[in-house]
Design a protein around this nucleic acid. Sequence first.
RNA 1: UGCCCUGUGGUGUAAUUGGCAACACGUCUGACUCUGGAUCAGAAAAGUCUAGGUUCGAGCCCUAGCAGGGCAGCCA
Length: 563
Amino acid sequence: MNNNNTPENTSEKKPKNFIYEIIDEDMKTGKFEKRVHTRFPPEPNGYLHIGHAASICLNYGIARDYNGKFNLRFDDTNPEKEEIEYVESIIQDVKWLGGDFEDRIFYASDYFEQMYNWAVELIKKGKAYVDDLNADEIRELRGTLTEPGKESPFRNRTVDQNLDLFERMRKGEYKNGEKVLRAKIDMASPNLNLRDPIMYRIVHAEHHRQGSKWCIYPTYDWAHGLEDSIERITHSICTLEFENHRPLYDWFLNELGVYHPQQIEFARINLNYTVMSKRKLLKLVQEKYVDGWDDPRMPTVSALRRRGYTPEAIRNFTDNSGIAKRDKVSDYALLEFSIREDLNKRAQRAMAVLHPLKIVITNFPDGEVEELDAVNNPEDPDMGTRKIPFSREIFVEQTDFMENPPKGYHRLIPGGEVRLRYAYIIKCEEVIKNEKGEVVELHCTFDPETKSGTGISKKKVKGTIHWVSAKHAVEAEVRLYDRLFMVEQPDADKEKDFMELLNPNSLEIIPNALIEPLLKDSKSGDRFQFERHGYFSVDTKYTTSEKLVFNRTVTLKDSWSKK
RNA sequence: UGCCCUGUGGUGUAAUUGGCAACACGUCUGACUCUGGAUCAGAAAAGUCUAGGUUCGAGCCCUAGCAGGGCAGCCA
């Protein structure tokens, strides 16, 4: 920790966004004794997605940058929607993203007793009352956006009555929906949140941590600010839709006279070609349009992880997406850029043929095997080299040969030459076809003078293609993913339901791709660049000791196929 | 037609708090290259929602509009 007043900022740490500016100001004025304490407060009712990741990175990043603290807190105030499965996945995701909450993992439900006591305090102050109206009646009296509401006939019960009724609510004397506790504020407020909001509702349901201890549960509006207050959070960062609620949180905290955090709202991240709402993601999962929350096509953290994304890439993406108060839709290309940039520097290179075409090298001795040197990563010489076997029969990519090539094509053509990566230049001498006229095999000759790495390059060819040795190659399943939706903003379409806009070709499974032998022993989660294809990682769900399954994380940039 | 928030290249963010708009992604050229990758060089692309006003000077301030978003769950 830096103690003087011109701290680490002297190293001209530019304010990253408007939230940093606010905190810088608070540090200057000593608003929170120069303390910074943030938190990530998810409800455990679904898996985390890339938008949550942005919030985690923001909150954790702030704590780290100001030498402060960061809490993980489950906002588990609704037993009907929350599950332990979600709690576990969220903890895993936050840790994986690097959000270090140390031992500070909290649950709102652990504060229920304290919240109850505070509610009693408000009742005693005449600031809260038990209402017998049902949900419809309450909505009726709440008024509309343009008309003020009307007061409930139960609004002026005595303190003693309210105390008694509230206690009996807790004891379970009433059925769901029979009574609620409301704050007594102002039924005519232009801010609807202040029209006597509900603080407690009766829910006879099993809570994933509290069991049946409680049958009254605090609403988010009542609970959330208290949770932050209890944990002495300094800056309660949340999304825009809670801006209108801030006056309410302020009201509660002031009436109670307790510690008061500063809430700051920012716009959530949206990503194009996908949907982000938990409800919609849940629908995709439940109706089996995807293979679970971690299906690699999903925008969830667990899916991105399974697909091969690194935490670093996700952090870079959220950093580059920026934090502001206006609604935004981030470009999927930025996400792809962030993972390419990261994996380019660290991924082991390998060769894999997805759609094989056989080549016989007629002047290469039958039965002979030559071990060739291949670079593991041209971006990082420290990663060394490896040996790959070369022999008379090899496979190349079907798309790397064309009988009638368009202009600009510089791979193999009849009578043409091309370099085999890390091997020799070959020439296509003969095209073998089946009865249907389809090309099934090529006969080529190789030029022994052109071996890679010998420095002799008297011959120049325009193309270099990848290959695998027929008898050495290993079979593997490869899964190619494309965007989940066909349109940029699937939930913006007013005519069509987002389910109609799913991309039918978002998954292509290649059961028998051929990979170089080195990859045989790769393990779940290992990441590779298949040269000229893209980055791939070993699937953690379907890979078995018998069969390797690779997920394509992202393609390489391809300036040819666009033309 | 109430209250709150927001309007800067295709996308996202920035502009020393009033000094003629910058960065990243994307796009397009060209160079280089044994990955049509990477890298390097360059280009196109906004005059800052509109109209007034203050000022020597406005993306930043004022006024009025317009547009987009949020709010009428006993969800969060």
